[in-house]
């Protein structure tokens, strides 16, 4: 199989590491070669964060470059726009519709672009935008935003729903399992 390139982007502290951990676990179980590259340290303090997930028969580089991503999963709208140049022609973006103002917008020295979803589509991306925060609240915890989003982007993979559920059970502490199962189902449906 040709290597698939998935990027998970968001704002430091949104829980993107759990999403990549889960996806990595699932891909490993399926017998593919896989590499996951993430950012730790200073940029986690509310900065723009990106995780690369690559899988296939044999994966060399752990990173994804401009024009290489098959799919970008974004926890925040502006981040989807920031990383758009990394998307392949006609690639897919699955994004949470949450808006988190970066400091230059808060202080008034920059403007948060409007109509981002339409502009992403205008640039040729296939966009699936979803309000994960509302669905996470419905599932019982705002923190489950990451699993709602995971549920949504699970639609675009060939893996069975049961495989995803097994991966959630393997990666999430038992006491949060029920909420996360519910969050996944709400995102996927």
């Amino acid at each position: 199989m040709e290597t698939k390139n998935i990027m998970i982007v968001g704002v430091g502290g949104q829980g993107s590491l759990l999403a990549s951990k889960l996806l990595g676990h699932l891909i490993l179980q399926k017998g593919y070669d896989v590499k996951v590259s993430e950012v730790h340290g200073m940029s986690q303090r509310g900065g723009s964060v990106v995780t690369y997930v690559r899988f296939g028969d044999k994966v060399y580089s752990p990173i994804i470059e401009r024009g290489e991503a098959d799919m970008i999963v974004s926890f925040e709208l502006l981040e989807a726009a920031r990383w758009l140049p990394w998307l392949k022609e006609n690639g897919r973006i699955v994004t949470n519709t949450q808006r988190i103002d970066p400091m230059p917008v808060i202080t008034g020295s920059a403007v948060y672009p409007g109509d981002i979803v339409r502009k992403l589509e205008g640039a040729g991306a296939q966009v699936d935008a979803i309000d994960c925060l509302t669905l996470a609240r419905e599932a019982g915890a705002e923190k489950a935003v990451n699993i709602v989003l995971l549920g949504r982007f699970s639609r675009y993979f060939d893996f069975e729903e049961a495989d995803w559920e097994e991966a959630i059970a393997a990666c999430v502490p038992p006491k949060f399992l029920e909420i996360n199962r519910k969050a996944f189902a709400l995102g996927r449906k």
């Binding site: 200073m42 303090r45 509310g46 900065g47 024009g67 981040e79 758009l84 970066p102 230059p104 502009k119």
Partner: peptide
């Protein structure tokens, strides 16, 4: 180089805080 696209708006930086 690989083909890539961007939206026209300037994307505000998101420095760590």
């Amino acid at each position: 180089e690989k083909i890539s696209h961007a939206i026209e708006d300037e994307i505000p930086a998101r420095p760590p805080v």
